[in-house]
Design a protein around this nucleic acid. Structure first.
Lengths: 127, 127
DNA sequence: CGGTATCCTCTGAGATACTG
DNA sequence: CAGTATCTCAGAGGATACCG
């Protein structure tokens, strides 16, 4: 049995799934794997997410010790998000999701090789 | 660019995340990795899910060609769910989630080694 | 720039009862 | 046993406006 703050899990996959059971957190990690990013960069890269939701998800990830939040006392303000060691350990998970996604599209979709997203190029380069 | 039914994705991770963006689908896959299972077995193993939600999620997974649904014309009825080749290819993803979960609990939780869930034991045996 | 504060919508999911 | 059929609701997430 596994316990986190008195919450009980039957197996470790349940722990992982419980943390990333929403639409955005893993996408954020994916973009931060490439390198640390400012709030606005994340907002631009994850096009569909709203500012409010992004703020909430970043806070949740910070509370779970998966990302770091660094504030630069400048005007205009600058806030940089980066992965903690725990966050960086998610790389293999995302990497396998990346490979699976490619296989799935090859069987059930269509690929037009144009401009892959940064993180993708990153992975291809032996990230 | 990737397209699935005219829906556009910037990278393959987005494809994967879009399919598994709810609370249950990956948990279902996780249990089916061990071996094929009947509806009631899944219902018992994934304790918190309701019958209705399980039905919906199984249908979605079947539509996406990730699981097979086999009906045995018996009384009482028997329906067996199993992974398609595409579904089986999710094993590495879940495996990495499994490893990450363990690391996370070791840092932020507590482990009491009692009875790991079947699938977990399965993985430990070199699944 | 990097947020809050409101207000609002929609749907994932639960509870419960019923059926072939 | 393996589902449907309703009813219900919390809360995830969006839209918009404002702030230090």
């Amino acid at each position: 049995m596994y316990y986190i703050n008195d919450k009980e899990y039957k197996c470790s996959v349940a722990v992982t799934l419980d943390i990333f059971n929403d639409r955005w957190k893993l996408a954020i990690i994916w973009h931060l794997l490439e390198n640390e990013k400012r709030f606005k960069d994340l907002h631009e890269n994850i096009a569909e997410i709203t500012q409010k939701t992004l703020t909430i998800k970043l806070k949740e990830l910070e509370e779970k010790n998966i990302i770091n939040r660094e504030v630069f006392p400048e005007v205009p303000p600058k806030v940089v998000y980066s992965l903690t060691p725990m966050g960086k350990k998610l790389k293999p998970v995302l990497k396998e999701m990346y490979y699976w996604g490619i296989k799935y599209v090859k069987e059930h979709g269509k690929v037009t090789d144009q401009s892959p997203c940064e993180a993708e190029a990153c992975l291809k380069n032996g990230f």
